[in-house]
Every structure is written in C-alpha cells, then in structure tokens.
Amino acid sequence: MRRRATIFCPYDTSLPEHALAQAHGTHPVVGSPDGYRHSPPYTDPYAVCGDCDLPLPEPEDPLVLHFGQRDLGKIRDTVGDWGESAGLWCTADTAVAEVRDRGRLTDPLTGRRRPDPSSPGGGRGVWMMHQFCDLVKIRTRPSGLVVRLHVALE
C-alpha cells in the first residue's frame, strides 16, 4: 500500500551551484517564493546512490596504519578479523579518519534512519557516525568498504 507524503526540505539558496544541483536531483518538486514546480534534474534515488559510490580520492600524505590480529590487543582481535587498514590525516580545515574493511552494506540508506534503540540487531554505529561527524562517506569496493569520517577543525 502506498501513502502520499509531503516533506519540506529547506535549502540555503546561497549554497554553491553544484550543491543546489544535487538537491534538485534528489527532489521531484522544488519551491521558491514564486511557488512550486517540477524539478527536471530529478532522478531515480538508486541512481543517485550509485553516483555516491564512486571511488574516493587518495589523501595527499596520510598516516596509514595497517593492522592484523597479532598486532592488536585481545579486544581488537575481532576488528583485526575484518579490518584492512586505518588512516588519519588533516586538510587545512578538516580532520579525516578512514577505515577499510571487508564489510558489506545492503541498504544504501544505512545510517540515515534512526535505529530502534531497543533492537538487539544493533545498527546504531553508522547512525552515530552521522550524528557526530560533519561528513560521512561510505564507498563499496570489490573487497569491502571504505568509510571516511570528516570533522571540521574550527
């Protein structure tokens, strides 16, 4: 059963043009002081998610920490089973942390919806990353995931 819903998403029109173009691509209808109109750049949400799964550029000078089971303490053994590498670096205005692992995501909206706090299945970690960080980028590779967390330094 489908239900109709109307959701209002306010955007600052002084944002850069590319940011506004992305917003128009994810909204079927856009509004202005003159009224509402169809958004011609609107596209299928799954196509938008696919565009967001392009490889991330390599950092200029990262500190990359490769780790395995023998290198970590007992508590980190589980992470060592799944983890591939971790890195930290700063740009002029942002601290960035990256983790590469053999994980998989089946839901392109993972972390975008608030999970049930009483759920025994977890699902709170990625949601919390989105709450604490200024930007979260997740990319799928053939061998697993790349997760980058960005936090503004100012």
Score class of each variant (00 low, 15 high):
residue 135 L to G: 00
residue 2 R to A: 10
residue 63 L to N: 04
residue 30 V to H: 03
residue 125 G to T: 13
residue 21 A to D: 14
residue 69 Q to W: 07
residue 39 S to K: 06
residue 34 D to T: 11
residue 149 L to R: 04
residue 129 M to N: 04
residue 101 D to L: 06
residue 142 P to G: 06
residue 151 V to N: 08
residue 90 C to T: 14
residue 42 Y to E: 01
residue 85 S to E: 14
residue 42 Y to K: 00
residue 101 D to F: 08
residue 138 I to K: 09
residue 29 V to R: 07
residue 32 S to R: 04
residue 119 S to C: 09
residue 134 D to V: 04
residue 32 S to F: 01
residue 148 R to Q: 15
residue 58 E to S: 09
residue 2 R to C: 02
residue 12 D to H: 12
residue 102 R to F: 01
residue 61 D to F: 01
residue 51 D to Y: 03
residue 64 V to W: 01
residue 11 Y to C: 04
residue 99 V to I: 15
residue 87 G to A: 15
residue 55 P to N: 04
residue 16 P to I: 05
residue 6 T to D: 10
residue 67 F to H: 13
residue 60 E to G: 04
residue 153 L to F: 05
residue 21 A to I: 00
residue 140 T to P: 00
residue 129 M to E: 02
residue 104 R to I: 03
residue 20 L to C: 03
residue 40 P to W: 02
residue 17 E to G: 05
residue 94 T to V: 13
residue 43 T to K: 13
residue 60 E to C: 00
residue 135 L to K: 11
residue 107 D to K: 06
residue 96 V to L: 06
residue 113 R to E: 10
residue 48 V to K: 03
residue 50 G to S: 14
residue 67 F to W: 11
residue 79 V to C: 11
residue 20 L to M: 13
residue 56 L to D: 09
residue 120 P to L: 08
residue 96 V to N: 01
residue 154 E to F: 05
residue 70 R to E: 14
residue 143 S to P: 00
residue 147 V to S: 07
residue 133 C to L: 12
residue 68 G to T: 11
residue 88 L to V: 15
residue 38 H to N: 06
residue 147 V to L: 11
residue 85 S to F: 10
residue 52 C to G: 11
residue 40 P to A: 07
residue 143 S to F: 00
residue 6 T to P: 02
residue 34 D to E: 15
residue 111 G to D: 11
residue 143 S to Y: 00
residue 91 T to V: 08
residue 23 A to Y: 01
residue 57 P to Q: 07
